[in-house]
Design a protein around this nucleic acid. Sequence first.
DNA 1: TCCTTTGTTCAATGATCCTTGAACTATTGA
DNA 2: TCAATAGTTCAAGGATCATTGAACAAAGGA
Lengths: 126, 126
Amino acid sequence: MTHPLFHPDAEEISLPAIFTALGDETRLNIIAILARNGERAMTCGQFTELGSKTALSYHVAKLREAGVINVRPDGTKRFLTLRRADLDNRFPGFLDSVIASASTIPLPENQSPAGPAETPGETEWT
Amino acid sequence: MTHPLFHPDAEEISLPAIFTALGDETRLNIIAILARNGERAMTCGQFTELGSKTALSYHVAKLREAGVINVRPDGTKRFLTLRRADLDNRFPGFLDSVIASASTIPLPENQSPAGPAETPGETEWT
DNA sequence: TCCTTTGTTCAATGATCCTTGAACTATTGA
DNA sequence: TCAATAGTTCAAGGATCATTGAACAAAGGA
């Protein structure tokens, strides 16, 4: 990595940018799954059912550039987390209402709402 | 009008569609102004500072088709209102958080937050 | 009836979006 | 060192988007 991945500062996160980022089915699903997974970070590889490797890379970048998620490289993987604190601070109540609303929408595959991990040792923390 | 303006049923309103509709600066401004105006309906002509006549017609149609606003033709005018009840029913808390968040963003012109009408008799009710 | 007001529709244009496959980089484990 | 893993970058494609001006339609008032 020549320079670290760009993330907008908390105060630079704009509402239209968030809406644009969330206005895509794939990206909204990524957010919903991340939210269901609690505070645990997830890798891009855990979203393969949502699209191709290339498409996911594209969508994850969009979410990152909009300030919705944080992407932390670690080895060959990237760990994704919601920027909860930053979003709550800038737009109080917004993320919660989005997650609550998005949760009424069925996910494309068998995404269990944060039960015990099927493959122990795979979960990571921020 | 050959047939009345299309409005999606409340249960057909989708979150991605709302995000797509609100992911545009002009449309978000329309919503913010509508919200600031309380329950009063507004005409397209009251948004001229946000864009040309043609552009506004385009954006208002987008908001209507996404289920965010209701458009009621009356004479030569169209009266716009937020679909508060439908949105609150389908996505509780969502619209309020959007409006609260959008209200922290400055409006492009001197949009007073629902003070007394400068031109009495122009306000309308749903 | 004629003109004004209010807003729509159309065609054209340039910009942006999302997806794809192929090629590539970087890291890890054997 | 070699191969597998995880993800990025690039170019190309078609689709959708947002804006413009010109023409149009519908209703209302003089």
